[in-house]
Amino acid sequence: MTHPGPGGQPDDEDLEAGGSERRSGPVTWRRGRVPATTTDQRLLDRRQPTDWLHADPWRVMRIQSEFVEGFGTLAELGPAVGVFGSARVAPEDPDYALGVEVGRLAVEAGFAVITGGGPGAMEAANKGAFEAGGTSVGLGIELPFEAGLNPYVDLGINFRYFFARKTMFVKYSQGFIVLPGGYGTLDEVFEALTLAQTRKVTDFPLVLLGKDYWRGLIDWLQDGPLAKGMIDAGDVARLTLTDDPAEAVRLVQTHAEPSA
């Protein structure tokens, strides 16, 4: 045990009696914090506990690996449109048919289709892209209530971390088409809006497909945040509302093509 001297610092006597100092990269340990073993010793010791697999430094490596895999897999994808929507949409729901149409039209316009890779509206968009002969991408996420990538994904990546997955959506999509959805869909919409508003990304089109479903959100943004001055009119204008899948794809295509 050390005894603080003037200013709350240990006395020289304590520093001498307290043992050694060890440095490992940018980290310095002193006195009672000095590990009893070296890094190499712990690495090579078969008898060590395995709880280090769940420690934060190891999680950093997992996070890094997700970014490396994502960038490496998608770097040569080419033009792509991100499609968001609810995992709970049944195949007989009109929104499912809407998703299939969006996927087909996007491929015909020269885009790959990127979804969250799950069921429902995501599956529908992947199905449309797959049946049209295009590239159907699924960026899955580890969740307790969803079972892997849908069968229409022909290029899939499964992520542990939402933020790594979101980065791939934003980096590799020229725009987003949003089918009706719940919290996850809203999270993706507002993430994209915030990044565009704060100029963290180059501006891109964000199209809400389904006027009846999304009108309430637009009204709330205008009557609430905009009326109170918490956002600007231009922030609301970042969202385009339509019922026409062809128009949605055209908006992304027009924005992606450089002007003459």
Rank of each mutant, 00 (worst) to 15 (best):
T202L: 15
L77Q: 05
R88K: 03
G78E: 12
P151I: 07
V249F: 07
Q48W: 15
E247K: 10
P258G: 02
T167E: 08
D11E: 14
A55W: 14
G117T: 08
G181I: 10
L98G: 03
D187L: 06
P258E: 12
V34W: 11
R30G: 02
D203P: 15
A121Q: 04
R59N: 14
V68W: 13
H255P: 15
R165W: 09
E191F: 08
W52P: 00
T39M: 15
D95I: 11
L251M: 11
G118I: 02
E257W: 00
P57I: 14
A121E: 06
R88P: 04
L105C: 00
Q48T: 15
E101Q: 11
T73A: 12
V60T: 10
F204E: 13
T28D: 03
L221I: 04
V34Q: 04
V81M: 05
E131P: 05
V81R: 01
T39A: 14
F71A: 06
I231Q: 11
T73N: 08
L155Y: 04
W214G: 06
T198I: 09
S65K: 12
R46H: 13
Y161E: 04
H3R: 12
D11S: 15
W29K: 05
A260I: 08
D11W: 15
D187I: 06
A125F: 05
G32H: 13
Q41G: 13
E16G: 06
T39C: 09
T50S: 11
L209F: 09
E21H: 11
S259F: 06
G110S: 07
D203K: 04
V107C: 03
E69C: 10
G138I: 06
S65D: 10
G133D: 01
S259R: 14
W58Y: 15
Y213G: 07
F71G: 01
R160Y: 05
D51N: 06
V113T: 11
D12S: 09
R88M: 01
G25V: 05
H255R: 06
V207Q: 07
G224D: 07
G118L: 02
T39R: 14
K228F: 06
M61L: 15
P144E: 07
V100H: 01
M1R: 13
V236E: 00
R238M: 14
L179Y: 02
I141H: 02
P10T: 08
A80T: 05
Y172G: 04
V102R: 02
D14H: 05
T185N: 05
L239P: 12
D244T: 01
P94Y: 09
G116Q: 03
W52E: 02
Q64S: 14
G103W: 00
R31F: 09
A106S: 11
K127Q: 15
L44F: 14
I63H: 12
L139I: 07
G138T: 05
R33S: 10
R42S: 09
T135I: 15
L206T: 01
P35L: 07
I177K: 04
V252G: 07
G148L: 00
Q64V: 13
L43H: 14
Y172K: 03
L193E: 05
T39N: 08
F130N: 12
A75K: 15
L43Q: 10
I114N: 02
D223I: 04
D243S: 02
Y96C: 01
L53A: 09
G216W: 03
W214L: 08
Q48S: 13
E191R: 00
P49W: 13
T242L: 02
G19Y: 10
G234H: 03
F169S: 05
M230Q: 10
T254M: 02
D232S: 14
G116F: 04
R250G: 14
